[in-house]
């Protein structure tokens, strides 16, 4: 089925499940077209493995257009591969040299345990969002959308933070496996918008506490996360989160409340 003429040697992390130990295994990837995406190249390798009755290499993927955040892969020492500002599914084989050896590893972090091969469990991110990454409004009974004017610069900046796809590349890139960029993006987005103000001080405390509980490392402001983020989320978000956190902890009276307790029956 392959149509191209590029060949690669893949060194891939194989691990049966979370409880097994894993190792790097070498596979050839032959007749690869430069127009294939990196995942399509893996599809080709997997098809040939299945034909041989072997287990295909497992990796997470879904939308294959760079927005769902499901694909990951630490390729040649870089999350999402060598190109800036794209996800692995948007990475094409033309970005590699024919004959190259490509090392593929899962995200490495205590908070992201390996599920199988190259797929990791990123539910820690969900739990952080659940701890406070929302505005507590119920469906219905909200004011007209145009009742609160939001300056365009604020809306745009909040949008920049909101573009995070939750892929975890920031954690993978960080030498400390810190999740600060991810967490701060949500804290910033809601912290900047008027809708997020009522819970601003409580939210940041709750989300940071959950982040700590998940076992991510600490931020040392190296900026590797920002450089590797496929959506170019800025370090500025971390700064904003820090500011909000310290304000909340040291100068505000708000405690972490039970978010949205007004909901329920």
């Amino acid at each position: 089925m392959s149509t191209g003429n590029m060949n690669f040697t893949l060194k891939v992390w194989r691990q049966k499940d979370a409880n097994s130990s894993g190792k790097m295994v070498t596979y050839p990837a032959e007749n690869i077209s430069p127009d294939m995406s990196f995942l399509e190249m893996l599809d080709v390798v997997n098809e040939s493995l299945i034909h041989k009755g072997e287990e295909p290499i497992h990796f997470d993927h879904d939308c294959r257009e760079g927005i769902c955040g499901m694909c990951s892969l630490y390729i040649n020492g870089r999350p999402h591969g060598p190109k800036r500002a794209i996800t692995t599914c948007q990475l094409h084989m033309r970005s590699f040299n024919d004959g190259e050896t490509i090392t593929i590893e899962p995200w490495r972090a205590a908070a992201f345990p390996v599920i199988k091969d190259l797929a990791v469990d990123r539910s820690a991110f969900d739990r952080i969002q659940q701890s406070g990454g929302f505005v507590s409004v119920n469906t219905g009974g909200v004011p007209d959308a145009n009742i609160i004017p939001i300056p365009k610069v604020i809306a745009d900046e909040a949008f920049n933070s909101a573009t995070c796809i939750g892929c975890g590349a920031c954690v993978a890139a960080c030498k400390n496996a810190s999740a600060m960029l991810f967490v701060s993006a949500k804290v910033s987005q809601l912290g900047m918008l008027p809708q997020g103000q009522p819970e601003r001080w409580s939210r940041v405390q709750a989300m940071v506490a959950q982040m700590d509980e998940e076992g991510f490392g600490n931020c040392t402001n190296t900026g590797a996360c920002e450089a590797e983020c496929p959506k170019e989320i800025s370090l500025l978000n971390i700064s904003r989160m820090n500011n909000d956190y310290f304000s909340a902890k040291l100068f505000r009276e708000e405690k972490v409340h039970d978010h949205g307790a007004s909901g329920g029956e």
Binding site: V137, I150, K152, F159, Q189
Partner: peptide, 13 residues
Amino acid sequence: IDQCVAQGVPFAR
């Protein structure tokens, strides 16, 4: 639209 804005969806302005 009202609901989404209330949730903090950053629509273009």
